[in-house]
Computed example of a mutant assay.
Amino acid sequence: MTIILFVIVLWYGGLFFQSFFLHRYAAHQVFTMSKPMERITFILTWIFQGSSYLSAYGYGIMHRMHHAYTDTEHDPHSPSYDANLFAMMWKTKTIYQDINQERIPVDARFTKNVPQWKVFDNFASSRFSRLLWIGLYIAFFSVFATAWWQWLFLPITFLMAPIHGVIINWFGHIYGYVNFKMKNTSKNLFRFDFLMMGEGYHNNHHKYASRPNFGVKWYEIDVTYLIIKVLDAVGIIQLKPIPVKN
């Protein structure tokens, strides 16, 4: 039971910071926060994503490119242009690293105001940091695993962020339903997105990229947005006014 709870905490903790910080803040900037709070959130993202930590800078730029080039040959991740999900993941990793390490030129429209903390990112993205987290996960499993099948969850803890990404960027462009006809293949994965905390409303998000709430229908409950509303109410962040048009 301890192992299952541990994996659930890592799943939803890492997913929340990917959705809240990397996606809605770094890429779309639907709210603002102070610089100290931004630094704290960088650190919390590292703690919960662990060995699969993603930089706000690399993620933010790449996600903006995804919206600009959805389902074209310039899209960093698209089932329409990748043979399988593993090929897409590998291409995404390469593009992300090239952006994050500034090895390729990036259009200024994709870099505007994207948060960057180079010193911390260099550490959090380092091989030392990733191996440290992997070692800690193995040690935790060694102490608390009570059955052989629980060890099957260990690789998931290593690759949590890429798994979150592939669920949305691969399956969210193949399976599900649509509320809006778009010039892309984006889908909503679930009527109630219990698995991805609102990220699964991908068709809605492509229609209204600037909205902090990814749910549109009454039953489409965006759990991340509900948390954002609480953080806004207590003054930790400040939601921006929702634009009338994208």
Rank of each mutant, 00 (worst) to 15 (best):
D222F: 01
Y81L: 04
L54P: 07
Q150C: 06
T146N: 10
W218D: 12
E220S: 09
G215K: 03
N100S: 11
N246G: 07
K91M: 09
D222K: 06
A147G: 03
G235H: 14
Q238E: 10
W90A: 13
A124V: 11
I237T: 09
L136T: 06
I61M: 12
S34W: 03
M88N: 02
F192P: 03
H67A: 02
F141W: 14
I167N: 06
L131F: 12
S55G: 11
A139Y: 13
D107K: 13
F123L: 15
K118A: 12
I167R: 03
T32S: 11
Y177K: 00
K93L: 13
G215F: 03
M160W: 05
I221W: 11
T41W: 09
G200Y: 02
I242K: 05
S210M: 04
V143T: 15
Y137M: 05
L189K: 04
F190R: 03
A124H: 11
W46A: 12
G176D: 02
A68N: 03
P212G: 09
Y57H: 03
H23Q: 06
Y219G: 08
F16W: 05
F192Q: 12
Y25M: 04
M182R: 10
V30G: 06
V30I: 08
K118E: 13
K181P: 00
M1H: 12
H28P: 08
F194H: 01
N169G: 07
T45P: 10
K181R: 01
V30R: 06
T185R: 07
P115D: 13
I4R: 09
K112N: 11
Y96M: 15
L15T: 13
Y12T: 06
G135S: 06
Y177A: 02
G165E: 02
V230M: 09
I163P: 07
T185M: 07
I228M: 11
H74A: 12
G50Y: 01
G60E: 07
E199T: 09
L132F: 15
F144G: 12
W149I: 03
K183M: 07
S80A: 04
I174G: 00
W218S: 13
W117V: 11
S210E: 02
K93R: 15
K91R: 14
W46R: 08
I134K: 05
P212S: 03
R127K: 15
F16C: 00
Y59N: 06
L189I: 08
I8T: 03
M88V: 01
H74P: 00
I237F: 07
L54Q: 14
A108L: 09
I40A: 14
F180S: 08
I40T: 13
D107P: 10
F158A: 09
N204Q: 02
Y219H: 13
D82H: 01
L189P: 00
K240H: 04
